[in-house]
Design a protein around this nucleic acid. Sequence first.
RNA 1: GGCGCGUUCGUCUAGUGGCCCAGGACGCUGGCCUCUCACGCCGGAAACACGGGUUCGACUCCCGUACGCGCUACCA
Length: 482
Amino acid sequence: MASTVRVRFAPSPTGALHIGGARTALFNWLFARHHGGRFLLRIEDTDAERSSPELTDQILRSLRWLGLKWDEDIVFQSGRRSDHARLCETLLETGAGYRCFCPPDVLSEKRRIQESATGGYRYDRTCLKLDEADIQKRLQQEIPFAVRFRVPEGETAFEDLVHGRIVFRHTELDDFVLLRSDGSPVYQVAVVSDDHDMGITHVIRGDDHLSNTPKQILLYRAMGWDIPRFAHVPMIWGPDRKRLSKRHGAVSVEAYREAGYLPETLVNFLALLGWSPGDDREILSFPEIVRSFSIPGISKNPAVFDEKKLEWMNGQYVRSLPLPELLDRVLPFLRNAGLVQEDDPGFSEEFLLRFVVMLRERVRRLTDFAETGAYFFRDPESFDETAVEKFRRNLRTGALMEALLQNLSRTEDWTDETLEAVVRESAATLDVRAGDLIHPLRLVLTGQTASPGLFELMAVLGQETVLRRLKRTLALWTPNHP
RNA sequence: GGCGCGUUCGUCUAGUGGCCCAGGACGCUGGCCUCUCACGCCGGAAACACGGGUUCGACUCCCGUACGCGCUACCA
């Protein structure tokens, strides 16, 4: 390969890494990996007001969690201020830029008038008409000035890797500001300067930047720099077809981690949001995605984020994880729910493994293990009301449970085969269907009407626990029990 | 308002002029399995925004309309 691919992800640490940013990062990462190139990270922290080191750390944590490792040192945009300023100076020297002494309030007034008249606004180039003497005079008076870019006539066209050829007539652009009157360079300047210095070959970013691109290309040209290739990927929308934002609830990668999603799931799902391998595959491993990834596979239209499918996919990954690995991932959620102790789980490895095996078929998120399986760790405190009512109406339930208690306390071989035999024989003796014992027993042991197979569950819980739970719930079946 | 981008089942998408009376997945739904719930399996409903061209033939190409989104700052 002639030149090495270099791409970057450039988040602004003004918030956590969200789904949209993660997808952009992922696409850049995949592109770099696929082509054996480099994936760089740049933190756009020039807005000191809204940026924070804590948020930067959080973004890095999320990227690492997703498995998106970056190459080389992180570039902090705030540290490149002088480079950005130098770009403005150069442009001023070459005549590509010019000083604008117009006071901001005059400008905003002009805009107000022009916008109400024509609906659009472009800087009227008042200061471009200034001659050298005018400029010197103003400089001596120390009138603050901004530096504007002098947009040439004509048009800018470029071949977007996702959208194809795109043309902007320069009459649509106005002489945008490069350097604010306080001396701070504007975003477009920072991006171009940084991307150039970082040797970026492909800019892969959200298509909300499409309209910024001609301005940036103009800057590259004015500096005589090589222009990178651009790939503008479509946005991710919430269910209301609006750009995904906090309004849609949990959108940060961090929030999905806490909600019990696996990083593998998120990567797979995000990869498929706006990109397709071209065939019918849905579950793809990291290496498979890297191998298949290509820009022509990126779609042009925005994608609605569908959490239902994410959940389904997470279930697939939960089920495919090797058991010990799955247990490791579940453990923190059990601790969080207070079901196991921080240092000592208080339960054997074997018990925990069986817990995970029995539940993994019926969960989608890691949090579900704690939510639907708490009875593995402690006696249920509440019981499904409608189920209790239902079984209580059958006046024999109390007697049935008592009989079962007797039979189970005499059971010596506490294995699921034996337990099943005991329960079924009890039913036969009592002249009821097996279900008449099974369902109330399930309720008694779990507090719920749904659980893993009852006999297996009894075997895992152990005789002592089963008998205890059976005993302490006997009163439940008394008709007028509170 | 102007400019830019987009428009295939509810959602993510396959489709690059005939293989498409449109395929897959999630969701929904009927059934099977079954001690419940899941998992799994089998089946079903469900889409080419609209109107003009081009062509022997258009989901695919061109034009227009409608709708949606983005940009339009001395924000990033």
